[in-house]
Amino acid sequence: MINFRANNRNHRKIVVIDGEVGYIGGFNIGDEYLGLSKKFGYWRDTHARIKGNAVDALQLRFIMDWNSQSKREHLKLKPAYFPVKDEEGDVSIQIASSGPDDTWHEIEFGYTKMINSARNSIYMQSPYFIPDNSYINAIKMAANSGVDVHLMIPDMPDHPFVYWATYYHAAELLDAGVKIYTYNNGFIHSKVMVIDDEVASVGSANMDFRSFELNFEVNAFMYNKDIAVELRKAFEHDVTLSTQLTKSRYAERSNWIKLKEGFSKLITPIL
């Protein structure tokens, strides 16, 4: 389906409990996210549980979002919402927000900076992969420079036109040597990037034009080897439940699929 109403929507997923614990990632609230949808079956997503001072940034983001929409009672920046933390963590975290109200696309630029800084490996998961040419070219340059690049997308559509546009844009990377996987064990909704087993991002932003410029999104950029390795290992496990999209496999697609790809590419600006 084409969603003509989705511009400028709040796509963030934030939970903050007592100002002490925060959650950020890809999970929405609904039966399909619990794996209860017959259409999608198992729902593969990634969410992060955060403690420490980074929770304050999530709390502030929620309050700002609430106050931007509330017509009656605004939330005040009360000390109770930002309690002094008992202990500091050992993970450096940046909470990045972006939206159509800001010309500085923090999450898109953060993703691109991560790609450009990669020296050894890049692992990416996104259910929707419809970025602009600069993003595509950054990935191609990394792959052509010898970086081991992996991208995982769904094997089933939740929005058909979006799916075929994603399939087309992912396949565009094959000639650069990027390894593309289609996830078979249900629907993959995870938005993750891992660079060199050192830096990782988990959040709500897909790797597409809508998340980069038209939605309000929030991601956590984490600078910690243990977390990066854990997320990379999760990706590698997902690979065992996926099929690799090779150049030969892509070349064998039917004319009907080519037609769907071509039409989806034409309407990319409104997907």
Rank of each mutant, 00 (worst) to 15 (best):
M64L: 14
P131C: 12
D226R: 15
E73Q: 12
F62E: 02
K191P: 01
G146M: 05
P154M: 07
F161M: 15
S145Q: 11
I195L: 06
K113W: 13
I17W: 04
Y81V: 01
T240A: 13
Y33R: 06
T166F: 04
I63D: 04
F62R: 07
F109A: 11
I153E: 00
N67C: 05
D86T: 15
S264R: 04
G19W: 07
Y23A: 04
G99F: 01
G110W: 00
K233Y: 14
I270K: 13
Y81E: 08
Q94N: 13
E73C: 07
A54K: 00
L173D: 02
D208P: 01
D132E: 10
F221P: 00
S97K: 12
A228C: 08
T240S: 13
P100W: 15
N206V: 05
W256A: 13
A80S: 07
N3E: 12
A6F: 12
S254W: 05
D31R: 13
G186T: 06
K51C: 09
H189P: 03
R5G: 10
I93Q: 00
R253P: 01
F40H: 09
G25A: 11
I130D: 00
M114G: 02
A48L: 10
P83H: 13
G26L: 03
I257E: 11
D196L: 06
Y42T: 08
Y123V: 01
M193E: 04
G26W: 01
G262E: 14
P154V: 07
I180V: 09
M222I: 07
A96N: 06
K113E: 11
V16M: 03
S126I: 07
L259H: 09
A54E: 03
M1S: 12
T268C: 07
F129S: 00
Y111G: 01
W104Y: 13
V192G: 00
T246W: 10
H11V: 03
I50M: 05
V84T: 10
D196I: 12
E88S: 12
E88L: 15
E236A: 06
R232V: 06
E261W: 08
V16E: 01
P157W: 14
M1K: 13
D101A: 14
S70V: 05
F161E: 09
R72N: 07
Y181W: 15
D132K: 15
D90I: 12
P127I: 08
V91K: 12
K260F: 14
H159D: 09
E32N: 09
N133I: 14
V202P: 00
K225I: 14
I122C: 02
I63P: 02
A176M: 07
I270D: 07
A54V: 02
G110D: 02
